[in-house]
């Protein structure tokens, strides 16, 4: 288990991060989500012990990082935003060096390196010089060095940064495959990445965790109640009037443009409504619309997308979030 208590970092009078308080259960994959400059990298650098905090504590399996730095470091694997690789070394040789640095004994290290090479699909590249590898393979070597010593805590700073779409999918699979064996903290500002890979999210804004939970919990917290999206064949005004007459419905509005699925766009005979309610009104809503002679093509729960939740939390509605298009389309 990872416990972070009152952790903060100041540069002079200027606060970079904190105070941070959170706990991570063993085996979870946690997403540290924040805009550029929010404090994600500083947080990971402190957790990895690369950077000393101004105040606060980090405990890994109950061991305090400040009191037993060597013991804790042996339990941490860290992939910074730029993989720490020695270009002149060969992959296997580098992994052996990284393993020994983390205190691995000579016996069994070869077998573990074989496992890691297999896991990261680097077997065929084991004898290649690192500086001859592509960016995607270098990133894999970066992950391999971080897990070679079977760390309890794995810290990945923007692990898909700079990868092409195929490499992103492969990296995502790799990170998923590590679930359970390591407790993983992954930072990213790419919403789809966090959404696809993580069990729980910590949203960091201006150096502070503003909220945490699963994507569903965040959605629930940000938009309490029950929203429904309904596609109706009939007049828009009549459909809204009927919807608002259902018990528990707070309001209904017509959707247009990008908010409407492509198949319903441009058909004037259809009305796509977003209904906000206090409870699950889907059955009652359908019954009312159908009994009043309107055709119901689709009724579904409307869950807010991570992007909108994040922007709401970050208080940066106008901010550009890299990869937002992917964040919307892949979900």
């Amino acid at each position: 288990m990872i416990e972070v208590r009152e952790l903060s970092k100041y540069y002079g009078e200027s606060k970079a991060v904190g105070p941070l308080d959170f706990t991570i259960e063993k085996g979870q994959v946690i997403g540290l989500l924040g805009l550029n400059g929010a404090g994600k990298t500083t947080t990971l650098r402190m957790l990895s012990s690369e950077l000393l905090p101004t105040a606060g504590r980090v405990l890994i399996d109950g061991i305090d990082l400040a009191e037993e730095p060597d013991l804790v470091r042996a339990r941490i694997g860290y992939l910074p935003d730029r993989p720490p690789l020695y270009g002149e070394m060969r992959v296997r040789e580098f992994l052996e060096f990284a393993g020994r640095l983390r205190g691995m004994a000579s016996s069994g290290i070869d077998r573990r390196i074989d496992e890691v090479l297999q896991l990261t699909s680097l077997k065929k590249r084991a004898d290649d010089r690192i500086d001859t590898l592509s960016h995607g393979f270098k990133q894999r070597v970066g992950i391999a060095q971080a897990i070679v010593h079977k760390p309890a805590l794995l810290l990945l700073d923007e692990p898909i940064s700079g990868l092409d779409p195929v490499q992103i999918v492969e990296m995502r699979e790799l990170i998923r495959s590590l679930r359970g064996e390591h407790t993983t903290v992954l930072s990213s500002h790419i919403l789809s990445e966090i959404s696809e890979t993580c069990d729980r999210l910590l949203v960091i804004v201006d150096g502070r965790i503003v909220t945490e939970g699963t994507e569903e919990e965040l959605a629930e917290r940000m938009t309490p109640g029950f929203d429904v999206r309904v596609v109706v064949r009939g007049a828009d005004a009549r459909a809204r009037e009927l919807a608002e007459s259902v018990d528990g419905v707070r309001g209904a509005r017509r959707l247009s443009g990008k908010d409407v699925a492509a198949e319903y766009r441009g058909d004037d005979a259809l009305a796509v409504l977003h209904v906000t309610a206090d409870r699950d009104v889907r059955e009652d809503l359908c019954r009312r619309l159908v009994t009043e002679g309107l055709g119901v093509l689709e009724v579904m729960r409307a869950e807010p997308e991570l992007e909108s939740i994040f922007l709401q939390l970050a208080g940066a509605k106008g901010a550009r979030v890299e990869g937002d298009a992917r964040g919307g389309s892949e979900r």
């Binding site: 012990s49 690369e50 720490p84 020695y86």
Partner: peptide, 11 residues
């Protein structure tokens, strides 16, 4: 080269 971090985060 960014490799110092490997040494700094090792025991």
């Amino acid at each position: 080269a960014g490799t110092l971090v490997l040494l700094k985060t090792s025991p």
